[in-house]
Design a protein around this nucleic acid. Structure first.
Lengths: 131, 131
DNA sequence: ACCGCACGCAACCTGCTAGTTGCATTTATT
DNA sequence: AATAAATGCAACTAGCAGGTTGCGTGCGGT
């Protein structure tokens, strides 16, 4: 048997196996993954933190205090923008970048969902054990 | 002047520039970045979701329903474990993996901090504008 | 004792990602 | 008009991350 077609393992009920498979195939998470991926780089996370301090900042400002090039910062901003976490507006000869707080909330909701689902499963399990 | 030593841009007060630089150099975020990076892959996010459904699952179970190899799943679990999001216990000839919900909370707190900081900055700005 | 299942380890391939350098373009400033 | 500032664009490099294949190992059931 091919190693990837592993129908059932141990003694897990078929229904649960089906549920797990459904979860594993779920496509809803694909979108949220991009947000986490965007936040998953230390440099980018620092950029986000810097933008949290309030006003919209230019690339030059965001580059100052970093040990990478301005172009590298530009690329990171591009990634963050693609994830919808940030957007920039042209202002004269510079471009100011600011946060998109709604996306942060999206990510937070996603984590909330995970945590909640886990808690729920835990209480169910507890109920089952204590029955 | 080198393009990376860009001391001040536009007409931003020096104090704020210093604050931004401090934020950009902050190392506290480094750790959280690894959590987000771990969650930043669709496959891994699905694994987490599958583990949310309750019981601890074996690698074979987690592989079933995916179109990747068992070894790929193993690697992803390794990444998740390195981020502290998951841990496995040997159980006979198989190894069951389960969530570490405290780390999820860590990530959530991190996002909360960002959102809160942003809100705070917003209200400050609003207060300034409406003065 | 034997066979099969679940897993670990190591080597390898491949594409993307972070980062750089060099140059062009637009906008202020004097 | 000329210069400097802030940014954009393109090509290039190096390294890592996701994925596979192949094989070895330990545990379980019969």
């Amino acid at each position: 048997m091919s190693p990837r077609t592993n129908p059932r393992a141990a003694n897990t009920p078929r229904k649960r196996v089906a549920a797990i498979r459904r979860t594993l195939r779920n496509r809803t998470l694909q979108k949220n993954a991009s947000i986490f991926a965007a936040l998953g780089d230390p440099t980018r996370l620092r950029l986000v933190a810097a933008l949290c301090t309030g006003s919209a900042l230019s690339i030059a400002q965001l580059t100052s205090g970093t040990d990478i090039t301005r172009q590298a910062v530009t690329k990171h901003l591009r990634v963050l923008a693609d994830a919808g976490l940030v957007h920039g507006v042209k202002l004269g000869r510079e471009r100011r970048w600011e946060l998109e707080p709604s996306r942060i909330d999206d990510a937070r909701r996603s984590l909330d969902a995970i945590a909640q689902q886990w808690d729920q499963a835990l209480t169910k399990l507890k109920a089952f054990v204590e029955r």
